[in-house]
Amino acid sequence: MAKYRVLVIDDAKYIFKAVKMALEPKGFEVVGHAENGKIGLEMYDQLRPDVVTLDVTMPVMDGIETATLLCKKEPEAKIVMVSAITDEGLRKSAMDAGVKYFAPKPFQPDELVSKVLECLSGT
């Protein structure tokens, strides 16, 4: 079975490592790490990942703007927003941008795996 390929867009090195530790033992391949949304969009074009984990608060380009641009260009892009900010206003902004799946920070490994699988299957 082909591995699902994951791009992490998050300014925190810790989150990149935590996502790798959660997903790789379950058969995912974490193919890249972008420190902000602008770099993330470029890496998406190059790497064509199956799913993106996306932070909200980042320098240069935040997660909402990144999701808006990515979903406009790639309507089928699969995004899990991984953020400590979980209020209703942010969720609405993210959903308006095209995000349907959310995981909190900090996350338990199984919690992230199940969110990513939900996102991939579109359930």
Partner: peptide, 13 residues
């Protein structure tokens, strides 16, 4: 960032 994000989410709610 995580803990302050949690706090502002609760304040915003």
């Amino acid at each position: 960032n995580i803990l302050i994000g949690k706090a502002i989410s609760q304040i915003n709610n």
